[in-house]
Structure formats: structure tokens, C-alpha cells
Design a protein around this nucleic acid. Structure first.
Length: 1043
RNA sequence: GGGCGUGUAGCUCAGUUGGUUAGAGCGCGUCCCUGAUAAGGACGAGGUCACAGGUUCGACUCCUGUCACGCCCA
């Protein structure tokens, strides 16, 4: 006996039970361990930041990361799944700052890096519990106990090893990065921090001329414009836009020649009479022109004092020629670097001028503006002076203006890896393909050297110890052991507040660690090695199982995890880090906007799970384009939909089976292998098709396509197989056919639960648990995925059934058109098909058709001429290429072919027609034959199939219809009374003569259908029972249960 | 501003190498069926396939441009 199954199931409740079962029997562990002998399928989990609760994006990625490994495990692979946590970086630092009330980097230093870092460490775990709860509730199987955290010592040690590998390859170099800098606190800030305190300020805006050397006009100067005069002593170049138009103009008053952007002339001259245009240039023509340095502090700087070209130059303000001080501007730095101009930075840590600029030595840079402007004026170089009001970033702690300046930074040389990365990427299978082939490949082709240093606190430390007296003398430490050897200090923790205290004394020299920490992307990119503590441990295992078979993350990781994995794996092993990757899109709120806590424009994930269940949510997400990198508008209705249209019908099918199997005390032991009934063979073939379609799609990592065939299958199972087979299950004698029906439905339900197990692990498990026999694995997730080898497909039968279904559908349509309800039996139906073989196949299912459409006989024939006319339509695909431009004119010709012509073409002959003097030979593949129902008849035609209904109603048919109506009302009453399915009853009725006749004639039928022991007329006076209208005949019906 | 993607019914989405009548589900309307009942079926209304050009006998599909939205970058 199976456990009774209620059709009124609570899916979320059922899921909780399954979770309990998994936990109690340790199924996840068993599912991994039982495949130990199988080939390993390697999965890498991209670590999320542990700084907030999981949202739909995480649930989505988590579902993908669950389905593929579950599937691969069922395919016999060993799939270990370790959860990962990204513990370092700004998000967690921001939380810690908030908790400690620290406003920025300097405040942290003041409070103590140790205090701060320990605060970060303690907060990482804040969300761990909540995450584990949600992830588990979603049905994701992942190992939280054997997880990896980027803050673990072993993980961090491997990071050092990875870094040292790059160091040995000479990939690490020190350069600069332009960052906002607080001169008051002597520290750089992140761009994020700089963005939090903008103030409106007035700054000088001056236009300065630089004298051009060897220009085609005498006494010529280029005009530049700046709002930071203090950067002019550090001016090393000026820059023009290559496509911008510039003019050389002569000032009619002073007779001097100025060069500036044509679009900016009007900003300096009110009237055209004031100047004369001498020549127009493109910016590209100015490139390389030398000029006289504005100040002579750095006169000898290589490659300097020339006009450069770059596209960033605009003509929105200024002169269209940009002054470049590479130490004080991002564009300046970048452009000058391209021209090999080394930067000069004459400011000390307080942003005061150093001895390099003796004129202003000791003066704070911004305070020097006045003196510098004076000097320019005296030197005749100041053309125009004004002030500008603009919004400018301030230090949020000290309210002093930030200075953008070059900060030391460490880089990984990546640009020379481009070719190798592209080659490695070419071997990666991306879903969808364009993300890898276009988006990611383009990004790789344009990869820039990677700034890996952060002037922060909570992260992996850059393992470089620098000689305090010689900045070029650097030791790269690659392991804890090495650091212990070099320093004599025992190393227990690799975080900044511990490691920075460790000095290395070697050959009388002292080495101190460079203060920066590593970009946390460096850590996630090192995850394949670091999670295994490679190469300190697991060396062979790692090397035998790298790269990963599969990873999955969101589209936003193109520049994130996907990229850092590729950079490091290419540099270290010249391989990609993953073979297959599924890229999901973003989950948006239903209104198409980003989900926003503030707007509350989305339902809480836990509420959705508790309302509809995790299976429904999983199915909804997976059966959408979001698994192909497109965005998804998260809709609660959609979740409900997948519950109603997939899970519920499936559950009902299962509930139907269990109900009747229990009534008949059918057990799997009575299972028989024979399948005489075409319906049984057909549903098994459909299941085989499902197996094939799902595994094909899964092997391509196409999740959406792997869910799609379930929709059709559930439809076929419930709306055709079960509905059409229902009687076989409740005919009272245990005949062979019934045994076969039970066996078939049982096998199908078991098979379906296996195929669906990776997608909807809960309902699959529940159904499996109830149906399984003792010799089957204890969980559906320990089963093997059914493969094509097991498949009992019969495609001919599938095709045949499709035609039958079409015939039935047409019959139903005709009944609708002629307002003949299905309970009214009809005498005859015609099914016509000129394909004899097909017709014979349909004929084999005659009883199915007659039963479904409630007709007494079905007449099969190959001649449709009585019911329909035929017409030829051109087959464009075939004829188009043959006829070319004549195609259009051939259409009416073909449409008007005679019946005889069509017949002979169909018979395989060739018919020639004339078109514009040319002879066209038409063969059967050139035309399509269309059948049109004849007017005034109940006929429908589709393809080669024509269906006709005999709509004549005889006395006998009406009487039978009445009996059917009678049964229907009794059944409604049984249901209304909530009777057990097997409850026997006595029926009483009172009605007119027609009803009496019907009951007299069909009494046995009525009793059999309604499980009635008797059906008797009540006396005239007896007014008990319900009043009904049976096809216009008033009637009282009453039911008495039999004891 | 650049790269990539998306734009098809009121909504969510399918649409195979170009082939004439562009599909499904939800919602709406009408009817039907029912021991799958938190259902099911049939029919109907609803589309200038974002827009504009081009290639072709033929374009939702290929090409070019424009617009809107998304992700990433600047």
C-alpha cells in the first residue's frame, strides 16, 4: 500500500518534510559519496559577499548551481560542492566602519587597524547563518561545513603563492594611480569615499599661453585653460583632440598668433573683427609640436613639452587644448604614459611644494595658486583670468578639499597575456555563446594591466617586503614558512594588523611590508587554488581536476570573477579555469526596475517560498530567459503559474494513481512487463522522448530548453493519457489491461520523478519516496538519470497519436460549432485521410476516438470528396529557388489547378503548366494540397485529415443522452455529498416519461457508472432529492448511501 | 561616448538554415466537459513582429542606420 495522497497538498509544507528527510538520512552526503568511483565533475562556487541577505539573484544563481551538479551526480559523476564566502573588501569594511562609527580610512588608523580588522572578522559571520537557512530552503545542496572563506589562513597563504608566481614571472610592477588624497590626513581615499562629500567652491580659472617652437607662424602660442594653477609647475605636456578643428588666429590688436579650438574662439573674442584666422588644423596635425616650458623646474624631463593627442579632449570649456600634469589627473597620467613621459610630483605628503619647485617650497599647493598666477602675469603668460564655481569633492572627515594625485600602486602585467587568454577562452563553452564569443572576448582583447593594490585594511596583504633604504630592493614572500624563516616570527594570521608588525632583517638591511592590501577580486580569481590550499596541500588532486567543468554566475561577472579567473589561470597554468559556464541575467522587479528595498517593489523571497514552495520558484526562474543572460522581471504570478500548471497537475496525476492503486491494492510487485495497449506504449514513448530532450539540453547547459519539454509531457500525461485511461483503472475486475495500466503509470511516475529531480528536487523526492520499493535507492537523488539507452521510444506511434489527437480536437471543435454537447451521443463520425497507412494507424485507436467524442461509430475512408474540396497551394520553399522572379506569377496558376491535375500530381505524376511562355513542371513536392470543408456540413479539415460529424439526433440517441445526463447529475451529487470514491449508493428519481424510458433502458449503465446498487422511481408524493433539468426534462434525484 | 544584448498580443515569453495564414500561457468574452476539481477543453477578440531604409521572387528572420531599455566599461 502507498501512503494516501491528498490532492489538497501544501507544497511548502511537503518541502519542509523533504528537508527533514534529507537531513535525517544525510542524503546529500550520500549522493556525493556514492559517486566516489565516478569521474569527478568539478564545480567552483563563486563566493558572494557576506554583507547582506540573499536576494533573487543569489537564489537564481544558487538554483543553477544546484541543478547542474544534481544532474551530473545522477549521471554518475562525483560532484563535490563547497560553498565559498568572499570575506574581504570594501563592503564588509563599510559595515565595520558603520558599526564602529569610523568615518574613513584615517579614522580607522587612529582607532587601530587591529580593532577595525577584528570588527570586520566578527561581522563576516553575521549573515552566514541566514544564508545557510535560505540556500538550504531553496533545495540547494552545497557543503557549508567544508566551505572556504577568503579570510582563512590557508586561503590567504595560497594567495601569497599565487602572487609570488606572478612576481617570479616579472608580472608585478609598481606604478601610480591617480586617487583622491586627503592632505590633512595624509592618506588616499577610495573613489567611493571621495564621492560622499561634494561642496560648491570657487576656484580660479585661468587661460595661459605656451610659446610654440618651430611653428609655421612666428610669435605663436597655444592657449591652455586650467582651474588648478598649482599644477602648472608640474606641467609636462599639452594635449589636443585629434579630430577637433583648431585655428591659428592673429590678434589684430597685439599681432600675436594663438592656437585654440575653433569652437572656443567665441569664448575669447566677442567680435570677429578682433582677429584674423590664419589657418585651420586638425588636432592630429598639431601632434608633436614642441613648446617652451611654462616654468623651468623640470626642463630636462624626457619627451616632455610637446603637443599630444587624445580623444578625451572636449571643447565644452577652456580652449580645447588641455594642460597635462601627469601626477595630478587621471587623463593626464594615462596620456603622458602613452608618450613615455615620466611623471614629476613636487608635493610632499602634506601637499606642500618640495625643493623640486624652490620658488614655492613649503607652501601648500592650493595656497600657492595666487603666487603662481602672479608669476604668470609677470612673465606675460597669463591671457585671461576668472573664477569658476563648481562642485568639488571634500574629505568627509576634515572638510578639506581633496587633491587628486598619483599614489603608488601595484599592477599585474596583463596586456601581454591577451593572446593567450583569448586562446584559452576559445575552448570554453559559454551559455549563451555570445557572452563568451563577443562580450568576454572583446574584453580580453582589450585587457588592461590590473591594479591589484588597495589602500585599505581588511584583505589579503601584498606579500612584498621593501628595503627601508632602497625601494627597489624587494623580497616577495610566498608562504608562511618562508616568512617565519626570514623574520624568525611565528605567523598565525596573515591579516594586515599582524603581518605589518613583522620586519625582515637580512644582510644588515631592514625590510618592511608595503602597506597595501590586495584587491579582493584577486582572491576570488585565485579561488581554484586557494580553496584547496594549493600547492601546500592537495597538489595531485588539484592538478588532476583543473580546470573546473562548470561554473555559473551573473552577467555582471564578465569583468569580475570570469575575468580574474581567466587572468590568473592563464598566467599560472596557461589554461582556462573553467570549461563550461552558465551566465544568468539580472533579476529585476516586476515593474522592470532594479529591486529596491526602499521602493519595496518586490516580494520577500522567503514569503514566496513559504507561499508557493521552492520547487515552484526554481521552476519559474529556470524556465525563463534569465538563464541565458537576459533579465527577468520577477513576478509572483509567474511563480504561481508554474505551480498551477506544472506541479499541481503532476501532483494530481500522482494522487490519482495512488488513490486507485490503494483501492485495488495494487503494489509494484504485481507489475507486468507487457504493454498491449497503445496508450501505454505511447506514454512510455513520450517519457522516453522527455528523457532525451532533457538530457540533450542539459548536456548543452541549456536550462530553459531542458524545462520546456516537461510542459508538453505533463500535458500529455494528465490531459490525454490519464484522462483517456481513467476507466481502465476503475473497471472493477482485475483484468490484464488494468494491471498493465497500473504498471505503466507507476513506471512513468517513477521515471518522471527521476528526470525532474534536478529541477524540482522536493516534489520529485516526495513522489519517489511513496512509490519506491525497498530495492530502489533510498532517495530519488541517489538514482541514475534515465538515459536514452533505457528509452522505449516509438516515434511512429507518437506521430500516429498526434493525428488522433488532431482528429479529436477537430471533432470537439465541430461539436462546439454545432452546439452539440459532448454528453449527447452521436451516431457517426467520419475520419478521412488519403494516406492509407496512416488511416490504418488511426483506425487502431478507434475506440479512443469514439469514446472521447461520444460517437457510436467511426467511419474511416480515404476518399474525402464527399466532405471536402481540394485545392493546391504552392510550396514556396520548394518552388521559390526554382522559379525565382516568376514565383509571384505562379501563385494564382497553382491555386487554380483542377482536381484532376492535383490528383495526378499527388499520384506522383508530373504536370506541366505554361507561365510567360515557359513550361513549368510541377511535381508533388512543389505543391501542398489543402482541403476545404464543404458548405453546410459538419466538417473540419487540417492537413491531410478531414473529420466529419453526423449531427442527426434520433430518438435512441436522445434517450442515451438523457441517461448520460442522469449519470452526470448523480456524480455531481456524490461529489457534493463528499462521498468516498468506492461508496455504494441507492438512487431514487422522479421524472417524465422520457426519463423513465432512459432509466429503463440504461439502468445497468447508470448503476455501474455511479456505483449504485439500485435506481428506482420514487412515488409521486415523495418530494425528496434535488431538482434537475435534464436536457429540458425536469427531474428529482435523490441518493441514499448503502451500508 | 564604446562593447554586448534585448525590443513579437494588455502581460510573460516561443519562433528552427529567409517561404506566404507569426504561435503558447496568463488575463478578457462565449460555450463545453468533469471523481485531475486550488482543475481541464473549444472558440473568439487582441499584432504596422520598436522605427526607417536596403538585399531578395519572398524578411519577424539577413545588412545598415535610428530610438528605447538592460549589463559592463569610459
Amino acid at each position: 500500500m502507498f501512503s494516501d495522497v491528498s490532492s489538497k497538498v501544501s507544497f511548502p509544507g511537503m518541502e519542509e518534510e523533504v528537508l527533514k528527510l534529507w537531513a535525517e538520512q544525510d542524503i546529500f552526503k550520500k549522493s556525493v559519496e556514492s559517486r566516489k568511483e565516478g569521474k569527478e565533475f568539478v564545480f567552483y562556487d563563486g563566493p558572494p559577499f557576506a554583507t547582506g541577505l540573499p536576494h533573487y539573484g543569489h537564489l537564481l544563481a544558487g538554483t543553477i548551481k544546484d541543478i547542474i551538479p544534481r544532474y551530473q551526480a545522477m549521471r554518475g559523476h562525483y560532484v563535490s560542492r563547497r560553498f565559498g564566502w568572499d570575506c574581504h573588501g570594501l563592503p564588509i569594511e563599510a559595515l565595520a566602519q558603520e558599526a564602529l562609527g569610523l568615518a574613513g580610512a584615517p579614522a580607522i588608523q587612529e582607532a587601530g587597524v587591529d580593532v577595525f580588522n577584528e570588527q570586520c572578522r566578527s561581522m563576516v559571520t553575521t549573515y552566514v547563518e541566514e544564508w545557510e537557512k535560505t540556500v538550504t530552503r531553496m533545495g540547494r545542496w552545497v557543503d557549508f561545513k567544508n566551505d572556504y572563506k577568503t579570510m582563512d589562513k590557508n586561503f590567504m597563504e595560497t594567495i601569497w603563492w599565487v602572487f609570488s608566481q606572478l612576481w617570479e614571472q616579472d608580472r608585478i610592477y609598481k606604478a601610480h594611480r591617480i586617487m583622491p588624497y586627503s592632505w590633512k590626513l595624509n592618506t588616499p581615499l577610495s573613489n567611493f569615499e571621495a564621492g560622499r562629500n561634494y561642496q560648491d567652491v570657487q576656484d580660479p580659472a585661468i587661460t595661459v599661453r605656451v610659446r610654440l617652437l618651430d611653428f609655421e607662424f612666428e610669435h605663436a602660442s597655444a592657449l591652455i585653460w586650467t582651474t588648478t594653477p598649482w599644477t602648472l609647475p608640474g606641467n609636462l605636456a599639452i594635449c589636443a583632440g585629434p579630430d577637433i578643428d583648431y585655428v591659428a588666429l592673429k590678434d589684430k590688436e597685439t599681432h600675436e598668433v594663438f592656437v585654440l579650438a575653433a569652437a572656443r574662439v567665441s569664448a575669447y573674442y566677442k567680435k570677429e573683427e578682433e582677429y584674423e584666422i590664419l589657418k585651420t588644423f586638425k588636432g592630429s596635425e598639431l601632434e608633436g609640436l614642441k613648446y617652451e616650458p611654462i616654468f623651468d623646474f623640470f626642463g630636462g624631463n624626457p619627451h616632455s613639452f610637446q603637443i599630444l593627442n587624445d580623444d578625451f579632449v572636449s571643447t565644452e570649456d577652456g580652449t580645447g587644448i588641455v594642460h597635462m600634469a601627469p601626477a595630478y589627473g587621471e587623463d593626464d597620467y594615462r596620456v603622458c604614459r602613452g608618450y613615455d613621459i615620466p611623471l614629476v610630483d613636487p608635493l610632499d605628503e602634506d601637499c606642500k611644494f618640495t625643493g623640486l619647485v624652490p620658488d614655492y617650497e613649503g607652501e601648500f599647493c592650493k595656497d600657492a595658486d595666487k603666487a603662481i598666477i602672479q608669476a604668470l602675469k609677470h612673465g606675460g603668460k597669463l591671457i585671461y583670468q576668472s573664477t569658476i564655481q563648481h562642485s568639488y569633492p571634500f574629505c568627509e572627515r576634515t572638510d578639506t578639499p581633496l587633491i587628486y594625485r598619483a599614489i603608488d600602486a601595484w599592477y599585474v602585467r596583463v596586456e601581454d597575456l591577451r593572446e593567450r587568454m583569448l586562446k584559452n577562452n576559445a575552448g570554453v563553452h559559454w551559455t549563451p555563446d555570445y557572452v563568451g564569443e563577443k562580450r568576454f572576448a572583446n574584453w580580453l582583447a582589450d585587457a588592461k594591466d590590473w591594479n591589484i593594490s588597495r589602500n585599505r585594511f581588511w584583505g589579503s596583504c601584498i606579500p612584498l617586503w621593501v628595503n627601508v633604504d632602497d625601494k627597489d630592493d624587494i623580497i616577495c614572500v610566498s608562504s608562511c614558512e618562508q616568512l617565519e624563516e626570514l623574520s624568525g616570527v611565528k605567523v598565525d594570521d596573515l591579516h594586515k594588523h599582524h603581518v605589518d608588525k613583522i620586519l625582515i632583517e637580512k644582510d644588515g638591511k631592514t625590510y618592511k611590508r608595503t602597506p597595501e592590501v590586495l584587491d579582493c577580486w584577486f582572491e576570488s580569481g585565485s579561488m581554484p587554488y586557494a580553496q584547496n590550499h594549493y600547492p601546500f596541500e592537495n597538489k595531485e588532486h588539484f592538478e588532476a581536476n583543473f580546470p573546473a567543468d562548470f561554473i555559473a554566475e551573473g552577467l555582471d561577472q564578465t569583468r569580475g570573477w570570469f575575468y580574474t579567473l581567466m587572468v590568473l589561470s592563464t598566467a599560472l597554468f596557461d589554461k582556462p579555469a573553467f570549461k563550461n559556464v552558465v551566465v544568468n541575467g539580472m533579476v529585476l522587479a516586476e515593474d522592470g526596475l532594479k529591486m529596491s528595498k526602499r521602493l519595496k517593489n518586490y516580494p520577500d523571497p522567503m514569503n514566496v517560498i513559504n507561499e508557493y514552495g521552492a520547487d515552484a520558484l526554481r521552476l519559474y526562474m529556470i524556465y525563463s530567459p534569465v538563464v541565458r543572460a537576459e533579465s527577468l522581471r520577477m513576478s509572483e504570478e509567474g511563480v504561481k503559474h508554474s505551480l498551477r500548471h506544472l506541479l499541481l497537475p503532476w501532483w494530481n496525476a500522482y494522487s490519482f494513481f495512488v488513490t486507485y492503486a490503494n483501492i485495488d491494492e495494487w503494489t509494484p510487485a504485481q507489475s507486468v512487463p507487457e504493454r498491449d495497449n497503445l496508450m501505454d506504449r505511447w506514454i512510455q514513448s513520450s517519457l522516453a522522448r522527455l528523457e532525451q530532450q532533457v538530457s540533450d539540453a542539459m548536456d548543452r547547459y541549456d536550462l530553459q530548453a531542458s524545462v520546456r519539454p516537461f510542459v508538453q509531457f505533463i500535458e500529455d500525461l494528465t490531459n490525454w493519457y490519464i484522462r483517456r485511461s481513467r476507466r481502465r483503472f476503475w473497471k472493477s475486475e482485475d483484468d490484464t489491461d488494468k494491471m498493465q495500466a497500473y504498471s505503466t503509470l507507476y513506471e512513468v511516475l517513477i521515471g518522471l520523478s527521476k528526470i525532474a529531480a534536478p529541477f524540482t528536487p522536493f516534489i520529485s523526492e516526495t513522489i519517489y519516496q511513496n512509490l519506491k520499493t525497498d530495492d530502489m535507492p533510498e532517495s530519488v537523488h541517489l538514482c541514475d538519470f534515465p538515459t536514452a539507452a533505457d528509452a522505449k521510444r516509438d516515434e511512429v506511434l507518437e506521430g500516429q497519436m498526434a493525428v488522433v489527437m488532431s482528429a479529436v480536437e477537430q471533432g470537439r471543435t465541430l461539436r462546439g460549432e454545432y452546439k452539440l454537447k459532448n454528453r449527447q451521443p452521436l451516431a457517426k463520425m467520419h475520419v478521412v485521410c488519403d494516406d492509407e497507412k496512416l488511416l490504418a494507424n488511426i483506425q487502431a485507436l478507434e475506440s479512443l476516438i469514439s469514446d472521447e467524442l461520444n460517437v457510436r461509430t467511426v467511419e474511416f475512408s480515404t476518399d474525402s470528396s464527399e466532405l471536402a474540396t481540394i485545392q493546391a497551394k504552392p510550396n514556396f520553399k520548394q518552388l521559390g529557388p526554382k522559379l525565382g522572379p516568376l514565383m509571384k506569377k505562379a501563385v494564382p496558376l497553382i491555386n487554380s489547378l483542377t482536381d484532376e491535375q492535383i490528383a495526378s500530381i499527388s499520384a506522383g505524376e508530373t504536370v506541366a503548366v505554361e507561365l510567360e511562355g515557359k513550361t513549368i513542371e510541377l511535381t508533388s513536392s512543389d505543391i501542398e494540397v489543402v482541403r476545404n470543408p464543404k458548405e453546410g456540413m459538419a466538417v473540419s479539415a487540417e492537413g491531410s485529415l478531414v473529420v466529419g460529424l453526423d449531427t442527426q439526433l434520433t430518438e435512441g440517441l436522445l434517450t442515451e443522452g438523457l441517461a448520460r445526463e442522469f449519470v452526470n447529475k448523480i456524480q455531481s451529487m456524490r461529489k457534493e455529498m463528499d462521498l468516498e470514491v468506492i461508496q455504494r449508493i441507492h438512487i431514487g428519481f422522479k421524472g417524465d416519461e422520457a426519463i423513465g424510458t432512459a432509466v429503463a433502458k440504461y439502468g445497468n449503465y447508470i448503476e455501474a457508472e455511479t456505483l449504485a446498487l439500485s435506481c428506482k422511481a420514487q412515488s409521486e408524493e415523495d418530494e425528496t432529492g434535488m431538482q434537475w433539468d435534464l436536457n429540458g426534462h425536469a427531474c428529482f434525484l435523490s441518493i441514499r448511501t448503502a451500508s
